[in-house]
Design a protein around this nucleic acid. Structure first.
Lengths: 230, 230
DNA sequence: ATTCAACACTTTGTCGATATTTTTTATTAA
DNA sequence: TTAATAAAAAATATCGACAAAGTGTTGAAT
């Protein structure tokens, strides 16, 4: 019967390695640690206020996930970004997410439906408004919506892989933050996906999902084309 | 200019953590470490003759891959096996492998073809013979054949995920080793897959692949049915 | 300019100490 | 006896210091 705060608020007994794993992952996804950066142990110890052991454990997990790469005896680096890699994340994410979506549509019950409805409503509310002052909130509700759609997929592996792919894609998406996008209506894309899913139309829903993901990737490609000399 | 043996034979500068990762993974796949086993640090240090740091780093990577699970502050355990999990590996492996196979058939060149031909020939040679004295050799050539089929898939993520899924499936397959299988002709299944792939018939090839994988899973289910109370 | 050797830096791995947590055992009260 | 509680033991997670091994660099000699 431990009566510390963590055990009363949440249930998860997180280790330091878990925490620093999440922090570094976030920093990579949001670009605070940029592609190719060398991840030296000593500076990181100070930055995240942990010892070498949990740090190295976190870096090992991140390299399994593909956010970091380690080679021989040369330590760790933040994974590189490239056009080819963006294409890879995009294709694999579509494959995995469309499978999850299909499973969800097949197995989703009333509870699933109402979650989707609620998430879509929350997202619509700030998508429609002209007030773009809350990019964090928008990102959060965007994730909640997409996640609700897939939440009735009961494959442990698909769910885990999907989360990794979502964040890897988000890392690319963050490169294009603030870019002016011509002729794109995000809300309409979400709406199409939403209605197809609730109508249990697998073909339409997966097509809408693929379109949505590819569009996002295209925006990034357009902006980074020259930098990646393609 | 290091002149140790490793650098002359192979190229990869492996760390102790890399080595112990592979050893533990092999021991799990081959059942030397059985489902649910507690992986205590001290005994493992002696068993693999390494210190705690590389050991914990290996265990962390294995838990990312799903061979091991770690919860809160309760150390590491070998992942459990169950009917539901076998179904999950099977389904996800089919999804991933069929995508890889499709990509391979689309992009495979002459070199790919000749690799497939060679691997199939090697496999056939020992599959046809009555001599079952070499299960290790058979397993090796089986892997080489399947791998050659997928080798023209150029998605880094699919390739990595596929290897993990193959080993997780192999872990289940090993449960049924030596079981008498009625009415199954492995060679015919491989042959169908082989010809469809070389004929660039994606539909036929992926169907043959799915059939092959499901058949394997069925054998395991049949044997473990009661034990898993289904 | 190229080669080679000495140097510094980084990473990897080991070990031991410590705090925290979990599990087990023992004890007590009903 | 059973159940609840307290104490003891074991295991885990973490840190810091140090040794070993590898990498890269500098600079002199050819």
């Amino acid at each position: 019967m431990p009566n510390n705060i963590a055990s009363t608020i949440g249930n998860s007994a997180k280790t330091l390695a878990d925490e620093v794993y999440q922090k570094i992952r976030d920093d990579i996804v949001h670009g605070h640690l940029t592609a190719g950066d060398k991840l030296k142990i000593e500076p990181l110890k100070k930055r995240y206020s942990v010892g070498a052991s949990p740090l190295r454990e976190a870096l090992n997990r991140l390299s399994s996930d593909g956010f970091v790469f380690s080679k021989g005896q040369q330590g760790f680096n933040v994974s590189e970004m490239s056009l080819a890699d963006l294409e890879d994340v995009t294709n694999v994410r579509i494959l995995i997410e469309n499978d999850a979506l299909t499973q969800s549509i097949l197995h989703g019950d009333d509870h699933w439906e109402s979650n989707v409805v609620a998430a879509f409503h929350s997202l619509s509310k700030i998508e429609n408004s002209e007030n773009k002052s809350e990019p964090f909130l928008l990102e959060q509700r965007n994730y909640t919506f997409h996640n609700s759609l897939l939440s009735a997929c009961n494959s442990k592996r698909i769910n885990q892989f999907y989360k990794t792919l979502y964040d890897q894609h988000k890392r690319y998406r963050n490169l294009a933050r603030g870019a002016k996008i011509e002729g794109r209506n995000l809300h309409e894309e979400h709406k199409a996906l939403y209605h197809a899913a609730l109508n249990r139309d697998i073909k339409l829903a997966t097509e809408a999902n693929e379109f949505h993901i590819r569009k996002t990737a295209e925006v990034v490609m357009l902006i980074k084309k020259e930098e990646w000399q393609n």
